[in-house]
Amino acid sequence: MERQGAAGGGPAPGALARAWDALVATARRTVADGLVVGTSGNVSVRVGDTVLVTPSGVAYDGLGPADAVGVDLDGRRLFGELTPTSELPMHLEIYRATTAGAVVHTHAVHATAVSTLVPELPPVHYMTSALGGPVRVAPYALYGTDELAAHMLRALRDRTACLLRNHGTVAYGDTLTQAYDRTAQLEWMCRLWLTAVSVPGRTPTLLTPDQLDEVTEKLKGYGQRK
């Protein structure tokens, strides 16, 4: 990481080190919050044209500064000895197609369950608007393949998150915090919908496109203004 920053004209070593620490903390949070089990799922963050990614098959609680893995937007390794996540094609497709600063992929239980039931998560809650609209389910394809990455990118059109059929979730954001929050929000909405549809003889009400548009406008002023 030091050599790449000093001689390669890329991000400063300090920026890469801070980004790696934040990435590891986010990856550990996915485990602590039950969004992944073991070494499933993966996280990445973009610093300039360098993409830091979690390595394949390594427990997050064992990752340290020396384990940093960085690639360019074409997937060429810039530094690191460990093999990047097998889902690198998905991460890179998002960075090449959007302004994403971070990507989180999980195998969250409720979201994965929903991915096996419907082609799109019904708009059961107004936070659907925070993800760009009803969350689509990308068709199944073998993990780690360009085919899966292509399916995912189509499902993400005008969205910041999607479900992967019989697989899990993908969400991106400007920052690791935003990407993680969108992931957690998606899992919560999937759990909410599964809970609602499980009530015998009852059908959950859904929000209309006009209601979602109204929320989208209101969310533009949400939070603290600087």
Results as ranks from 00 to 15, higher is better:
Ser56Cys: 11
Thr54Ser: 04
Leu52Glu: 00
Asp213Ile: 08
His125Leu: 14
Tyr143Glu: 09
Thr195Glu: 00
Glu214Ile: 13
Leu206Glu: 05
Ala150His: 05
Gly14Leu: 03
Val36Asn: 09
Thr50Val: 13
Ala102Arg: 06
Tyr180Asp: 05
Trp188Asn: 00
Gln4His: 15
Met152Ile: 13
Glu87Arg: 10
Leu153Asn: 04
Arg29Ala: 09
Gly48Leu: 06
Ala100Met: 08
Leu176Pro: 00
Pro13Lys: 10
Val36Gln: 05
Val170Glu: 01
Met90Asp: 07
Gln185Ser: 12
Pro123Ala: 14
Leu92Gln: 04
Trp193Asp: 02
Ala7Ile: 15
Val69Tyr: 00
Thr205Trp: 13
Val170Asn: 00
Leu164Glu: 09
Leu63Asp: 04
Ala108Asn: 09
Leu163Cys: 04
Thr106Pro: 08
Val197Asp: 01
Val135Lys: 09
Ala138Leu: 08
Pro84Ser: 05
Arg28Val: 01
Asp146Gly: 05
Tyr172Val: 00
Ala22Arg: 11
Glu81Phe: 12
Tyr140Met: 03
Gly10Leu: 04
Thr112Arg: 10
Leu192His: 01
Thr169Gln: 03
Gly62Trp: 11
Gly75Asp: 03
Thr195Cys: 00
Asp213Cys: 10
Val69Gly: 02
Gly34Ala: 02
Ala130Asn: 14
Glu187Phe: 01
Thr30Asp: 01
Gly70Ala: 08
Arg159Ala: 02
Gly8Val: 12
Asn42Lys: 05
Asp61Ser: 11
Leu142Cys: 11
His151Tyr: 06
Ala130Asp: 15
Leu148Ser: 02
Ser115Asn: 12
Val53Tyr: 08
Trp20Leu: 02
Ala97Val: 12
Leu16Glu: 02
Asp67Gly: 03
Thr177Tyr: 13
Trp188His: 01
Thr128Ala: 13
Trp20Met: 04
Leu163His: 01
Gly80Cys: 05
Ala196Cys: 07
Ala113Asp: 11
Asp210Cys: 11
Leu194Ser: 02
Val37His: 15
Met189Ala: 02
Gly62His: 07
Asp146Trp: 00
Arg182Tyr: 10
Gln185Ile: 05
Thr175Leu: 04
Leu117His: 12
Gly10Asp: 05
Val53Thr: 09
Ala171Trp: 03
Gly223Ser: 14
Gly5Ala: 06
